[in-house]
Simulated scan of single mutants.
Amino acid sequence: MMDEPFDGFDLRQTRDVMDLLRRQTASGRTLILSIHQLPDAERVCDRFVLLSAGQVRGSGGLVDLRALTGLPSGSLEDIFLALT
């Protein structure tokens, strides 16, 4: 479990951490990340739990969340805003 794993890093460092996380998941590990920067979450995660005011507003893969909101090409930010 990681809380804000990209905070304080520059662009190169963020990409390095993302590559490390992808290698870990490719080897079969499951990682849980708490990320407020939704574009970063969209770049590195394959499943999401969207929380607002302490409640789950949506969960699943990006395709699932797009279907839920009727936003076939919506970003994770667009989806979050539609659900909250």
Rank of each mutant, 00 (worst) to 15 (best):
M1I: 01
M1G: 12
E4C: 08
P5A: 02
D7Y: 09
D7G: 13
G8P: 04
G8N: 10
G8K: 11
G8D: 10
D10Y: 12
D10N: 15
L11R: 13
L11G: 02
L11Q: 11
R12S: 13
Q13V: 05
R15H: 13
R15C: 07
R15V: 02
M18L: 05
D19I: 04
L20M: 15
L20E: 11
L20P: 12
L20W: 11
L21G: 12
L21H: 06
L21I: 15
R22A: 12
T25A: 13
T25D: 06
T25C: 14
A26Y: 01
A26H: 10
S27N: 12
R29E: 10
R29V: 08
R29H: 10
R29M: 14
L31T: 02
L31N: 08
L31V: 11
L33S: 03
S34H: 03
I35V: 06
Q37D: 14
Q37P: 01
P39I: 10
P39M: 08
D40P: 02
D40C: 11
D40V: 11
A41T: 02
A41D: 07
A41L: 08
E42A: 07
E42Y: 01
E42Q: 11
R43T: 06
V44N: 01
V44R: 03
V44C: 02
V44F: 04
V44S: 04
C45Y: 05
D46K: 05
D46I: 01
R47S: 11
R47E: 14
V49C: 09
V49R: 11
V49Y: 12
V49G: 05
L51D: 07
A53H: 15
A53N: 14
A53S: 13
G54E: 10
G54S: 08
G54L: 13
G54C: 11
V56N: 10
V56G: 04
S59A: 15
S59L: 14
S59F: 14
S59W: 14
S59G: 04
G60Y: 04
G60S: 03
G60E: 02
G60N: 00
G60M: 00
G60C: 00
G61H: 01
G61V: 05
G61N: 08
G61K: 00
L62E: 01
L62C: 01
V63N: 04
D64R: 00
L65Y: 12
L65G: 11
L65C: 09
A67Q: 14
L68M: 13
L68W: 03
L68D: 06
L68C: 07
T69D: 13
G70Q: 08
L71D: 07
L71F: 10
P72D: 07
P72R: 03
P72Y: 01
S73I: 07
S73M: 06
G74D: 02
G74S: 01
G74F: 00
S75W: 07
S75R: 12
S75Q: 06
L76R: 05
L76T: 02
L76Q: 06
L76H: 06
E77S: 13
D78W: 04
D78S: 12
D78A: 12
I79L: 08
I79R: 09
I79K: 06
I79D: 12
F80I: 03
F80C: 02
L81H: 08
L83W: 04
L83A: 10
L83G: 07
